[in-house]
Amino acid sequence: MNPAFSVIFLTTLIGTGQGLFLALYTAQAYSTVALLPAQPGSFYAVGSAIALALLIAGLIASFFHLGHPERAWRSAARWRTSWLSREVIVLPALMGAVAAYGLVHYYGWGLGLIGINTPVEGDLALVIGAGGVALAFLLFLCTGMIYACIKFLQEWATWLTVVNYTLFGLASGFLLATAYAAWRAPALMYFYGGWTVVATLAVLVTRVVSLIRNRRLKHKSTIQTAIGVRHARIVQKSQGFMGGSFNTRDFFHGVAPRLFRSIKWIFLVLVFPVPLALLFAGMIRNSPVLIAAAFVVQYLGLLAERWFFFAQANHPQNLYYQTIS
């Protein structure tokens, strides 16, 4: 497939925003049971603002691959059968939950506003945040299933697609939370850093498994099935066009094989070993700058990973149009 950069930015930005929000809520939940030191409401309010900004940026990016952005609202109409429609509905709902979570912390509101008094500090934020957590994981599911449900693109049609989208979002979100904590709440830096390592190593395993799986795939479609001829030896010599077409532009990335393979190794290096090395160095030296650099490097790697994810999908029509004479 030919990746649209707007979709690459959409999926990586909202994934990081979801992960950051989940990190914020996790820290509050731990502090509620005295496993972590409590933080002021401003810590969660500013963190929620950053997460919301990432979600909004992802939503804005999504408009750039629409032929008629003014009709974007119609994309929610097929929510009964379309994972894309469900994503369009869940994303704004999550944005509302994140905004409400941040506002509740900023103003220090509690359940006492509605006549419910509890001994738990930040009780209203915990309730709203729990709903946000459910929406965040539902959004991971919707985004991953947009691609995993396409059966004829065998590289995507696997449970690993949903798992990788979720784990990449958690890894990048918790890494950003580590950088944010190093700046605003050093007591949480090692907590977030530890979970960043866990999420990053987990997605390293699942992403490598998906790479191995895709390399061993035996495609159901062949040149024989594409043209309806069952001869054992058929060789394609031309794509069937004197010039390009919609088919050749939108369903094949057009990158040289050597560069395509290089991008795989680029993202494997930038997403995993380099950020972890910078993260460890930053935590040892208590350096927000090094941890922020780890996030920037990993995000650049995520852009390369997402491009590779889309480009690796081999549309069956490429059997007929891909080869150039």
Rank of each mutant, 00 (worst) to 15 (best):
T118V: 06
A34G: 14
L10T: 14
W159D: 13
I227T: 09
Y320Q: 04
S221H: 14
N2F: 10
A277H: 04
L276V: 05
R215Q: 08
I234F: 06
T26R: 07
A187G: 03
T12L: 07
L201W: 10
A29C: 09
G169T: 13
F280N: 03
N247Q: 06
W159K: 08
P316K: 03
G112K: 06
F5N: 11
Y30E: 11
R258L: 05
I60F: 14
I89F: 09
G67D: 14
R306Q: 02
G131C: 00
T178R: 06
T32F: 06
L111T: 07
A313G: 02
Q239N: 06
H315N: 03
I284G: 05
V209M: 14
I56S: 08
F174N: 03
L84T: 12
A294F: 15
L111F: 05
S172D: 07
R249H: 09
L276Y: 03
A130T: 02
L141A: 00
L52H: 09
T158P: 02
F63R: 08
P257F: 05
A179N: 06
G47W: 08
P316N: 03
N164W: 15
V274W: 03
Y107I: 08
W109N: 10
S262T: 07
V289K: 12
G194A: 04
R233Q: 07
S31C: 10
V208N: 07
V46Q: 11
A4S: 13
V127Y: 00
G47Q: 10
R249W: 06
V205L: 14
G129L: 00
R207Q: 07
F260K: 00
Y321C: 01
N318D: 00
L302D: 09
W73L: 13
A292R: 14
K264L: 06
G193E: 04
F168V: 11
Q312G: 03
L13D: 09
N318K: 00
Q317H: 00
F21I: 09
A171P: 10
P273T: 06
Y299P: 06
Y44N: 08
W156P: 01
A177Q: 05
R213K: 11
S238K: 13
W159Y: 14
T166L: 12
T178K: 02
E155F: 02
R184F: 05
L138E: 00
W183A: 04
A313E: 02
W83I: 15
L259M: 06
R71H: 13
L124W: 01
A157N: 15
G122M: 00
L153T: 02
Y107P: 09
V209I: 14
T206P: 12
A29N: 07
N314P: 01
S82D: 12
Q322C: 01
W109Q: 07
Q39W: 08
A29V: 11
P288E: 12
T248M: 01
Q236S: 03
Y299A: 04
L84F: 15
Y106L: 07
F21H: 10
T206M: 09
W159H: 13
F272H: 05
A277G: 03
L84G: 13
C149R: 00
V297T: 12
R71C: 12
G112A: 06
V269M: 04
P275K: 01
A304T: 10
S210L: 12
A27P: 14
A61H: 12
L279V: 09
T222P: 11
A182H: 03
G144C: 00
I223D: 08
S6Y: 14
F43M: 13
L113A: 08
Q239M: 02
A256G: 02
L176Q: 05
R207T: 13
P257M: 02
I116R: 05
F280E: 05
S262L: 08
L268P: 01
